[in-house]
Design a protein around this nucleic acid. Structure first.
Length: 559
RNA sequence: GCGCCUGUAGCUCAGUUGGAUAGAGCAACGGAUUUCUAAUCCGUCGGUCGGGGGUUCGAUUCCCUCCAGGCGCGCCA
């Protein structure tokens, strides 16, 4: 029995279709490609192409007639494609041969750690900037969603042949940092019984600020209070920012989010990068002075209004530092930058695109994934979050309540741009309406079946035991096709920067496995059938493992 | 006022650069357990894709307009 079959299958089909197009004397419209995709409806075949509809335009013939010509010229092996037929408006539907599906099982099991990976990214170096919360407070639930999406994106991109890295940009400079410092100073002064200015209106009043102030060694803090006013704020701020960044790093590590580099805004100021960016923009003639401030003419790049880059008091703005930061990222050799931003930052996108173009970097290599808000529910009722006093559910509390797996899976289930309702009760519920457990249970069940087979003394089957003639029941074929679609799914999730496709797929695959399991006993009286089903079960387990890995969710052996 | 996101089944959401009769889970209802994990399976019910117009052989998808919700519009970040 042959162990190798054409792979990946969509590339094979596209190649054969191109051959048929040429032989039939047809030609594709400019810029059009031969699309081969998994149809939504299983009745529409395992793979399908609308290429005849595309060709019909230039051929000036009815799509179904074009499809007929294509089929007449199409050459495919019978043990790869068992059927190719015209359907609907002129679609060509392919049914994969059981021999190919069985070969795919062997392929999965012979390289279990790489199934689903592909080279489509061609080594493109991508930097994902994500979370990037202000180091003036604990990470919140939206940060947690960003952490899930960013980290999953890195994993998915790397699986698809990109070289993706994660970076966290900490705004440890500027007005917010000073306000934070002033707030800590007030709490410290209160603690040692001194009079101090009240916390500024725009300052930080959360309980964590008191904790930070309480940790300052008293003698050291007293020394700081002798410094000039601004020095005081900066000194207390530096202390607090270090504590907050430690805490954020601890939370993100616990959450499993990959941060390859923690980048501090202050590095850019101290190293002269911000000043350099200013000088460069001036040199390019893209700035003007107005009202004592220096403005970047971002309207020349499609922004709605010009933006201040140096304030009248001589201080550079956050925007100028961010411009320097993005310049630095490109200068470090990244081919593409992807920023994950919260919904309150969308006004920032246009000006960033503008300044990137102004600094002579390719504008289309800067992408933004906008992440919408999270609404926390408990048993269907919104969790009240009071802004006063800075009370909110921190990432740490979320993880204490629902755990890493449930949190990540829930954050990754929805498209980033969709506002998310996160039900804390549902996330820990051990029942069928909880998708995390549904998927994890499928993996645990597989592990259990394999374990059971070993206990029964069933010999470890060789790969040749994955015989197509023994894997022909409807539920079995559905499962075989399900695992066959995994590699193209990963590639598509990477291409569209859409991690949510993975949990969606895993939920469907879990349903397919559960159905197979229910209808067909894996360890049964027939040794050959048992061997074939064991291999399919193992291969399915590999796909669950790989898929959950891409989400950073654990694949338990038992539940 | 301007900009961005969202609007799909009772609820929560998918819908692959414009493709097939718009799908899934939950909820509701009815079934399945001498069985490798019932944290499971099988079935039924459920739709003016926010409204209207346009482009197209074809629109949930693209364009225009209106409506509703969220967010932003600072020499804060």
């Amino acid at each position: 029995m042959p162990t190798e079959k054409p792979w990946p299958i969509e590339a094979y089909l596209a190649e054969r279709l191109e051959g048929a197009i040429t032989r039939a004397g047809l030609s594709m419209p400019d810029g059009a490609r031969v699309e081969v995709e998994v149809p939504r409806e299983p009745e529409h075949g395992d793979w399908a192409t609308p290429v005849a509809l595309t060709l019909a335009k230039t051929a000036r013939r009815p799509p179904r007639e074009v499809a007929k010509s294509l089929l007449e010229s199409l050459e495919v092996e019978a043990d790869v494609v068992s059927a190719a037929e015209i359907a609907g408006a002129g679609f060509i539907n392919f049914r994969l041969a059981p021999a190919w599906l069985a070969a795919n099982v062997r392929r999965i099991l012979s390289a279990p750690t790489t199934y689903g990976s592909s080279p489509v990214g061609r080594g493109e170096k991508i930097l994902i900037e994500y979370v990037s919360a202000n180091p003036t407070g604990p990470l919140n639930v939206v940060n947690a969603r960003a952490a899930s999406i960013g980290d999953a994106l890195i994993r998915i991109l790397n699986a698809a042949g990109f070289e993706a890295r994660g970076e966290f940009y900490a705004n440890d400079w500027g007005l917010q940092a000073e306000l934070f410092g002033a707030s800590i100073r007030t709490r410290f002064a209160e603690r040692i019984g001194l009079k101090a200015p009240a916390i500024p209106d725009e300052g930080y009043a959360g309980a964590y600020v008191i904790e930070i102030a309480d940790a300052i060694p008293e003698s050291e803090g007293r020394e700081w209070l002798k410094l000039p006013e601004r020095e005081q704020r900066l000194r207390f701020a530096a202390w607090g920012i270090d504590r907050m960044l430690d805490r954020q790093e601890r939370d993100l590590t616990r959450f499993g989010a990959r941060i390859d580099r923690w980048f501090r805004e202050s590095e850019l100021h101290r190293g002269g990068a911000v000043e350099k960016a200013r000088a460069r923009l001036v040199e390019l003639g893209l700035t003007e002075e107005r009202d004592g401030a220096l403005w970047f003419r971002s309207t020349a790049f499609g922004d709605q209004e010009d933006r201040v880059i140096v304030r009248a008091n001589g201080e550079p703005t956050y925007f100028l530092a961010d411009a320097a930061y993005h310049h630095d990222k490109f200068a470090r050799g990244f081919d593409r930058l992807i920023d994950l931003l919260g919904p309150d930052h969308h006004g920032h996108i246009q000006r960033m695109q503008g300044v990137i173009e102004a600094l002579r970097w390719p504008r289309d290599r800067f992408e933004v994934v906008l992440i919408q808000w999270v609404r926390l529910l408990r048993g269907g009722e919104p969790v009240k979050m009071s802004k006063r006093g800075g009370e909110f559910i921190a990432l740490e509390e979320l993880l204490d309540e629902v755990g890493v797996d449930a949190a990540r899976f829930f954050f990754l289930m929805r498209r980033a741009e969709s506002p998310l309702d996160f039900d804390l009760e549902l996330a820990v519920k051990r029942s069928e309406d909880n998708p995390v457990y549904y998927v994890q249970y499928a993996h645990a069940r597989i592990a259990h079946v394999l374990d059971y087979a070993r206990q029964q003394g069933v010999p470890e089957p060789g790969l040749d035991a994955a015989r197509p003639d023994l894997l022909g029941e409807p539920e079995t074929l559905v499962l075989l096709r399900g695992i066959a679609g995994f590699p193209s799914l990963v590639a598509a999730a990477a291409k569209h920067r859409e991690p949510h496709r993975i949990p969606m797929y895993l939920k469907e695959l879990a349903a397919k496995f559960h159905s197979f399991y229910h209808h067909h006993r894996v360890v049964g009286p027939d040794a050959d059938v048992t061997a074939a089903r064991l291999l399919l079960t193992r291969a399915t387990g590999v796909v669950f493992h790989r898929g959950l890995d891409l989400l950073g969710v654990s694949a338990p052996e038992s539940m």
